[in-house]
């Protein structure tokens, strides 16, 4: 799991732990303090996030598969 924690945009006190891949599936992640929910707003943003995650995943896999010598 690649969880990312951000500060709550609403209360600025609590934090919201996000799982980016689940965001793509429409998941809503809530603030630990005020209960505000965060999800991706539209299809354009979902696609942008998905492309970025795929690209990042490729970089990570390439780094692991690359021979050193």
């Amino acid at each position: 799991m690649n969880t990312v924690t951000i500060q709550c945009p609403h209360c600025h006190q609590g934090s919201i732990a996000l799982e980016p891949r689940l965001l793509l599936q429409g998941a809503i992640f809530t603030c630990s303090l005020c209960g505000s929910g965060l999800s991706v707003a539209n299809e354009t943003s979902t696609q942008l996030l998905e492309q970025s995650l795929d690209k990042l995943e490729q970089i990570k896999q390439h780094a692991h598969a690359k021979p050193l010598m």
């Binding site: 945009p9 505000s36 539209n42 943003s45 942008l48």
Partner: peptide
């Protein structure tokens, strides 16, 4: 920064 639009739901 590239921005993505998120929906914030609060009670």
């Amino acid at each position: 920064p590239t921005m993505i639009e998120m929906q914030l739901t609060r009670g």
